[in-house]
Design a protein around this nucleic acid. Structure first.
Lengths: 203, 203
DNA sequence: TGTACATCAGTGAACGCGCGTTCACTGATGTAC
DNA sequence: TGTACATCAGTGAACGCGCGTTCACTGATGTAC
């Protein structure tokens, strides 16, 4: 990649970083081209060398945010161990991810039901893919014996939804103590779901 | 109430209705005073006879939206019957509520993690109150024997979170068939949680 | 009931401002020979 | 290596526009007697 390409890439990053930072306190729909370019140290017109409009930048941010979330989900699904350890590990990984990617997580929580259709749809489509992936990982487990595709999808959806809402809760935690309470609650909830899962086929 | 008061009330309603309608397609943070007054058939300056600013109108809408949700939650909690009927009834009530209050539900989903702090906090506080209320209703049930306050709060939180996410799903359903799928999934998820709940004290 | 005055919801004009987008441009980087 | 031209990321000025908010006002409603 030539110097010019590298510089362009750098400017694009600066715009996305500025956007991400500004979006911690406001909605994508309320974010302005001038605002972002100002924060990125660029002239307003320069924005258009990278994005068609703000929605376009939003979609780019969704892709980036969900890519890092994808890594997270995959890593949890690959873990092996007893139910209890898996639950502890899951909650721990969510908490760490939120800590390390506050802006991305906040952006997703905020724009998931936000005012920009393209962005909403991108988030929804990606969460569906997560659910599918989780479902595929649950299928071969012995506890899932006799489960239909529909039942697996239902369970996967419950897990994904729980992950999202737990991440959003961590985001709002005002202090470490609140974080610990959220983690404890999330672990109990996962334990309860796991129990229900084990007894699903008891008739 | 005199004629003048009644007319003022009517104008206030017109502003809130216009806001609610406009917020189906955008965020509160992106909504303008002129936009709302135009939609409500009032001059821009008239807005300030009713609200300090848009955030103020937002908080009024939260209160209204959550009042109707409160009625919903209460009605479900008061129902009596077998676990299976209660689950069916719960999902049915959620679906009906979304059908009859689309704009309010959408507003809540959108602004729960939206860009206006006051509004976010109002929603969070009210959802906490719901969870507490649900917890109080669960406590006396025989299945809850031996459950600590913490455990009851954890379960109540799971139910409230599930209600919110199910309502949001109904909102996005493009056709009746999708609605039926969402309802079926929600019922199964509640059944699974109910199973976990019954086996929570099995050691 | 009638009259004189007070209240105040809603108006219309005005303000200064920052917005998104366009344009011709500049000058560093890339390419062909 | 050097030269001549092409590309194109980023600039700075300009545009027209709708914004939030203020202000003095109007006229219907309310109140006191």
């Amino acid at each position: 990649m030539g110097v010019r390409q590298a510089q362009k890439q750098q400017s694009r990053r600066a715009l996305m970083d500025a956007g991400l930072r500004l979006l911690e306190e406001q909605n994508l729909a309320g974010l302005g081209v001038r605002e972002v370019t100002r924060a990125a140290g660029m002239s307003p017109a320069g924005f258009y060398r990278h994005f068609r409009d703000m929605a376009d930048l939003g979609v780019a941010l969704v892709e980036e945010s969900l890519a890092s979330l994808h890594v997270l989900v995959r890593s949890v699904l690959e873990e092996r161990g007893g139910a209890e350890e898996l639950i502890d590990r899951t909650v721990e990984v969510i908490e760490q991810h939120v800590r390390g990617n506050r802006a991305h997580v906040r952006f997703l929580a905020r724009e998931r039901h936000g005012g920009v259709r393209q962005v909403r749809e991108a988030v929804a489509a990606e969460l569906d893919r997560f659910a599918e992936e989780v479902g595929a990982a649950l299928a071969p487990q012995s506890v899932s014996e006799g489960w239909s595709d529909e039942e697996l999808r239902m369970l996967a959806g419950l897990y994904v939804e729980h992950m999202v809402s737990t991440a959003a809760s961590f985001l709002e935690a005002p202090d470490p103590e609140a974080g610990r309470r959220i983690a404890a609650t999330a672990r109990m909830q996962l334990r309860l779901v796991s129990l229900g899962r084990r007894h699903w086929k008891d008739i």
